[in-house]
Write a protein that binds this DNA or RNA. Structure first.
Length: 857
RNA sequence: GGGGACCUGGCGGAAUUGGUAGACGCAGCGGACUUAAAAUCCGUUGGGCUUCGCAGCUCGUGUGGGUUCGACUCCCACGGUCCCCACCA
C-alpha cells in the first residue's frame, strides 16, 4: 500500500486529459449546452489563491455538468489591455506587448497546473489585433447608430501622468499613481449612450432570477431612476442672456414647492459661468468650489457654501413671491438640470444652507400627529409622511397626491413636465493611453469625424513607442496618427484615445462561441451558447463590468449581432481568500513563511522563525503583496498537491464568503486526499465485520444519500457542505472493511460513486482511484451517479419525541407509518411517559418523518 | 445621509428552509504504534449540575420582547461587524 503522491500522479492525469483532448468543445455537439465562465483574468504575471478559488469553483460546475451529459463550454482568455503594462514599460523599459504576452504565457502554465477542464483551443487575449479589430468593427456600427458620441466633459486630469483618471482612481483628490493633485479639466471625450438603455437595464434585472439579490439591488441603485418634475422659473425682471425661457430645475418633491426659499445652481452651471465672466467675485467663488474634494470625509465635513447672484425668479404658483438665485457648492451640474429649488423645511442640505445664509424655513408638510400652529423645524429637516399645508391649492393633500397635483398644474401652465431622471451617466470610454484598443476614427479638418474604413481595420497599435515621457505615446508618435481622410483624401489625423478596458470585457463571452469568426460575433454559434449559464467572479464587479456587459449585449442585440439581451443567466459572486497578517513591532509586515506560531488560544504568539523576535498578529485580510500575507499557489501545489489546494479553498467556507487560508486547513484537505486513496488502495486489509447483510443495506443507503447530498450541494453552490458530506461518507466507508465478501458489492458501488462524486473537486485523485477500482476509461468521461430515491430513504426512522418542546424520547417507526400509530408509539415510550406523569395530554403534533411533540399540562 | 448583508463552541462553519443546535474540518486533550519524534490510527471535546458508572437534568445560536405545540430560522426594537452608494435635489 503506497502513499498517494500528488507530485507524480497529478501531472500524469493532466497529460492524459490533454492527450485525449477531452475538454475540446464542438459547436455542433448535439447534447444540451451549458456555458460556464469565470471572469477572465488580468495577466499580472502570477496566479494567486483568489484565482485558484475562482477557477476551481468554475471547474466544479463545468465537470459536474459535463458528467450530467451536457455539452459544456468552459473557455479561458485574458483581459490584457490596461495600465499595469504601461507602468511596467515606464518603470522597467520593457514593451507593454512583450510584458503582457510573457505574463500570459507564465500564467497559462500556472493555470494549467490547476487541472481545469478548459477548452484551451478557444483562448484569446483582448490585446490580440484579431480581437480588438473586431471590437473596432462593432464600435463603428454603434457609432453609426448614434450610440457613440463625442462631447466636452469635465474629467479628472492628472497633470503629472498627463492622463484622464477614472473617479475610482482619484484618492482624496490625488492621482492614485502620481500623487498629484487632480485637476478638473474640460476635454472632448468619447461616450457610449448607456443611458438610452437605463430603463431596459432596470427592467431586465427582474428576469435575472439566478443572480444574487445584492447585485441586482446594487445595479438598480447605480442606475438610480427617480421620477419628478422638470420645470422653469421665470426671472423676475430682465432675464440674463440665454435664459429668456427661465431657469430650469429638477425636483422629486414638487409637493413642497410652496416651501421654496431659494433657487440654487451648480458652480459649473452655464449661468454661473456667464455671471463669473462679468463678475470677479462670482468667478472666485466658482473657483473655490472646484477645489473641493470628493472623498468621504470631505463630503461629510464639507461646509455648505453659497454666493447670492442678486438675481431673483418668480414663484410659479404665487406671482407675488420671488426667490433669490444662489450659486451653491453642493449642487451637481451633471445630475438633473444642475439647478434646484431649495425647500429648507424638508431637505437637510437645503436646511443647512438656509440656516447659514439666513433664508426662511417654511414647513409645508405637516406630520400626522403635529399641529399646524405649533409644528416647527429645528436642526433636522422633516422628510417623513404627512399632509400638505401652507400651500394654497395643495393644502390638505397627501404627499403623493400633492406631487401629482403640482406636476399637473406646472404642465397646464406650460412651465415644465413630469420627468424621469437617472443617476447613471453616459459611459466615458476615452483613455489617453497607449495600451488599449484604438478608437477607429479619423479626424479631418474638412469632413470632421470619419470612421476608419472597414478595409483599414484593425487599426493596429504601433510597436515603436516610447514611455520615457508622461502622457499618451500615440500622440507623440512621429507618424502613426497622420493619415488621409477616407472621404476627401486630404490630410487627416487618427484618434489617439484608446477605449476603456471595460469595453474589451463587455463582449468577450460572445467571442468565445467562435473566437476565429471573421465577424465580431459568429451569430449562430453565439445564439447556440449564450447566455452564459453560470458566470462566476468577484462581487467587486457587481456594478461596472456586469452593467457594461449587459449594456453592450443589448446594443449588439439591437445591431442584430446576438439574440440575447442578458448575457449572464446565472451569476455567482465568490468570496476572497484571506490570511492572517503578521507585523514586527516596527509595523513592518512579515510573510507567513517567515514566522512560527507558538501556544494556542489566548496565549497564541507569533515569532520570527530565525530570530525568535516576537511579532504582532494582525487582522485577517485579503491576501495582498502590501500586507505580505500572501501564500503562493505553486508552493502549496508542491507541498500538498493541486487537489488538496482546490479542495481546501472550497471546503472551509461557503463559496460566497471569504475563506481564511490556514496551514491546518490545507493539511486537513491533504489528509482527506490520502485517506480516500487509502480506501481505494486497501482492498485486502482488515477483518470481516459482523451483521453483513444489514450492513450492506446500510452502506447502500448511505451511498444513495451521498449522491443526493453532493448533487444538491453542487446545484446550489454549497460546495463546503457537499465536501463535508463526502468527509462524512468516507468516515462511514472506513467502517466497512474491504475483505468482507458480503459487503463487497455494496462497497464497490460505494467506491464507484465516491470516485465520481469527488471528481469535480479533486479530479486527479478521482482518476487515480477510478483506475485502482477498475473503472472503465477515465472518470472524467463517466456519467454522474444517479440516486435512487427508494434507496436513499431509511427503512426505519428514528423519530424524536418531545414533551412540551423538550426532547424526552425516541421511537422507531416505518417511514410510511400512519399518524395514529406514531402517536400511540410516542405516548407509550418510556422516557416520554415518565414526563407525562400527572399531566393531561392536550395535543399531539406529529410532523411526518420529522418529530412528535406532545403538549400536556 | 441612503441601500444591503451578517452575528451559532477555542476557530472556520453545518442545520433537510419552522421540527433532535453544534454535522464536517481545524485546534485541543487522552490512548495505540515508535528507543524517541514525525506521520498514521483509535477515542474524546459547548457550559453548568447530579452520578462510582450507565445515564440523567439544565442553560445555550449578539441583547430584549413577540408569534408558534415548537424559533438559529419568522416579526419588532436595540447593539455590534462588514460591504456598496453618496451633498443625486
Amino acid at each position: 500500500m503506497a502513499r498517494y503522491n500528488p507530485k507524480d500522479i497529478e501531472p500524469k492525469w493532466r497529460a492524459a486529459w490533454a492527450n485525449a483532448d477531452v475538454f475540446r468543445t464542438r459547436n455542433d455537439d448535439p447534447r444540451p449546452k451549458y456555458y460556464v465562465l469565470e471572469m477572465f483574468p488580468y495577466p499580472s504575471g502570477r496566479i494567486h489563491m483568489g484565482h485558484v478559488r475562482n477557477y476551481a469553483m468554475g471547474d466544479v460546475v463545468a465537470r459536474y455538468r459535463r458528467a450530467q451529459g451536457h455539452a459544456v463550454l468552459h473557455p479561458m482568455g485574458w483581459d490584457a489591455f490596461g495600465m499595469p503594462a504601461e507602468n511596467a514599460a515606464m518603470e522597467r523599459g520593457v514593451h507593454p506587448r512583450g510584458w503582457t504576452y510573457e505574463n500570459i504565457a507564465a500564467m497559462r502554465e500556472q493555470l494549467k497546473l490547476l487541472g481545469l477542464s478548459i477548452d484551451w483551443s478557444r483562448e484569446f487575449a483582448t490585446c490580440d489585433p484579431a480581437y480588438y479589430g473586431q471590437q473596432q468593427a462593432w464600435f463603428l456600427k454603434l457609432l453609426d447608430r448614434g450610440l457613440v458620441y463625442r462631447k466636452e466633459a469635465t474629467v479628472n486630469w492628472d497633470p503629472v501622468d498627463m492622463t484622464v483618471l477614472a473617479n475610482e482612481q482619484v484618492i482624496d483628490g490625488r492621482g492614485w499613481r502620481s500623487g498629484a493633485v487632480v485637476e478638473k479639466k474640460k476635454l472632448t471625450q468619447w461616450f457610449l449612450r448607456i443611458t438610452d438603455y437605463a430603463d431596459d437595464l432596470i427592467e431586465g434585472l427582474s428576469t435575472l432570477d439566478r443572480w444574487p439579490d445584492k447585485v441586482r439591488t446594487m445595479q438598480e441603485n447605480w442606475i438610480g431612476r427617480s421620477t419628478g418634475l422638470r420645470f422653469s422659473f421665470d426671472f423676475a425682471g430682465t432675464p440674463p442672456a440665454g435664459f429668456e425661457d427661465g431657469l430650469e430645475v429638477y425636483t422629486t418633491r414638487p409637493d413642497t414647492l410652496f416651501g421654496a426659499a431659494f433657487v440654487g445652481i451648480a458652480p459649473d452651471h452655464p449661468l454661473a459661468e456667464q455671471l463669473g465672466a462679468a463678475n470677479p467675485d462670482v468667478a472666485a467663488f466658482v473657483a473655490e468650489c472646484r477645489r473641493g474634494g470628493t472623498s468621504e470625509a470631505e463630503i461629510e465635513g464639507a461646509e455648505k457654501l453659497g454666493h447670492d447672484t442678486g438675481l431673483r425668479v418668480a414663484h410659479p404658483f404665487d406671482p407675488d413671491k420671488t426667490l433669490p438665485v444662489w450659486i451653491a457648492n453642493f449642487i451637481l451640474m451633471d445630475y438633473g438640470t444642475g439647478a434646484i429649488f431649495g425647500c429648507p423645511a424638508h431637505d437637510q442640505r437645503d436646511l443647512d444652507f438656509a440656516r447659514k445664509y439666513g433664508l426662511p424655513v417654511l414647513p409645508v408638510v405637516l406630520p400626522t400627529d403635529a399641529h399646524p400652529a405649533t409644528f416647527m423645524v429645528g436642526a433636522d429637516a422633516y422628510t417623513g409622511p404627512g399632509k400638505i399645508f401652507n400651500s394654497g391649492f395643495l393644502d390638505g393633500q397627501g404627499i403623493e397626491q400633492a406631487k401629482a397635483a403640482a406636476v399637473a398644474k406646472i404642465e397646464e401652465m406650460g412651465k415644465g413636465k413630469g420627468a424621469t431622471v437617472y443617476r447613471l451617466r453616459d459611459w466615458g470610454v476615452s483613455r489617453q493611453r497607449y495600451w488599449g484598443c484604438p478608437i477607429p476614427v479619423i479626424h479631418c479638418a474638412k469632413c470632421g469625424v470619419t470612421p476608419a474604413p472597414a478595409d483599414q481595420l484593425p487599426v493596429v497599435l504601433p510597436d515603436d513607442v516610447s514611455f520615457d515621457l508622461p502622457g499618451n505615446p500615440l500622440l507623440r508618435h512621429p507618424t502613426w496618427r497622420f493619415t488621409t481622410c477616407p472621404t476627401c483624401g486630404g490630410e487627416a489625423e487618427r484618434e489617439t484615445d484608446t477605449l476603456d478596458t471595460f469595453v474589451d470585457s463587455s463582449w468577450y463571452f460572445a467571442r468565445f462561441a467562435n473566437p476565429d469568426a471573421t465577424d465580431p460575433i459568429d451569430k449562430a454559434a453565439a445564439d447556440h451558447w449564450l447566455p452564459v449559464d453560470q458566470y462566476i467572479g468577484g462581487v467587486e464587479h457587481a456594478v461596472l463590468h456586469l452593467l457594461y456587459a449587459r449594456f453592450i449585449t443589448r446594443a449588439l442585440k439591437d445591431e442584430g449581432m446576438v439574440s440575447v439581451a442578458e448575457p449572464f443567466a446565472g451569476l455567482f459572486t465568490q468570496g476572497m481568500v484571506t490570511h492572517e497578517t503578521y507585523a514586527r513591532q516596527t509595523g513592518e509586515w512579515v510573510e507567513p513563511s517567515q514566522i512560527v506560531l507558538t501556544a494556542e488560544g489566548a496565549a497564541r504568539r507569533a515569532v520570527m522563525v530565525d530570530t525568535g523576535e516576537p511579532l504582532i498578529i494582525g487582522d485577517i485580510e485579503k491576501m495582498s503583496k502590501s500586507k505580505k500575507n500572501v501564500v503562493a499557489p505553486e508552493e502549496i501545489f508542491e507541498q500538498y498537491g493541486v487537489d488538496a489546494a482546490r479542495l481546501f479553498v472550497m471546503s472551509d467556507s461557503p463559496p460566497e464568503r471569504d475563506v481564511q487560508w490556514t496551514t491546518g486547513g490545507v493539511e486537513g484537505a491533504g489528509r482527506f486526499v490520502q485517506r480516500v486513496w487509502a480506501e481505494f488502495d486497501s482492498q485486502t486489509d482488515a477483518a470481516p465485520a459482523p451483521e453483513n447483510a444489514m450492513r450492506s443495506e446500510e452502506l447502500r443507503r448511505a451511498t444513495h444519500k451521498i449522491i443526493k447530498a453532493v448533487t444538491e450541494s453542487v446545484d446550489q453552490f454549497k460546495f463546503n457542505s457537499g465536501i463535508a458530506r463526502l468527509y462524512e461518507f468516507l468516515n462511514l466507508l472506513k467502517t466497512f472493511p474491504a475483505t468482507d465478501g458480503s459487503v463487497s458489492d455494496a462497497r464497490n458501488e460505494a467506491l464507484s460513486v465516491l470516485a465520481r462524486l469527488i471528481s469535480p473537486f479533486t479530479p486527479h485523485l478521482a482518476e487515480e482511484c477510478w483506475v485502482r477500482m477498475g473503472g472503465e476509461g477515465m472518470v472524467v468521461d463517466a456519467p454522474w451517479p444517479v440516486f435512487d430515491p427508494a434507496m436513499a430513504t431509511d427503512a426505519e426512522l428514528l423519530l424524536p419525541v418531545q414533551v412540551n418542546g423538550k426532547r424526552r424520547g425516541e421511537i422507531r417507526v416505518a417511514p410510511d407509518a400512519d399518524e395514529a400509530h406514531v402517536r400511540e408509539k410516542a405516548l407509550a415510550d418510556e422516557g416520554v411517559s415518565v414526563h407525562l406523569a400527572g399531566l393531561t395530554v392536550r395535543k399531539v403534533i406529529v410532523v411526518p418523518g420529522r418529530i412528535v411533540n406532545i403538549v400536556a399540562n
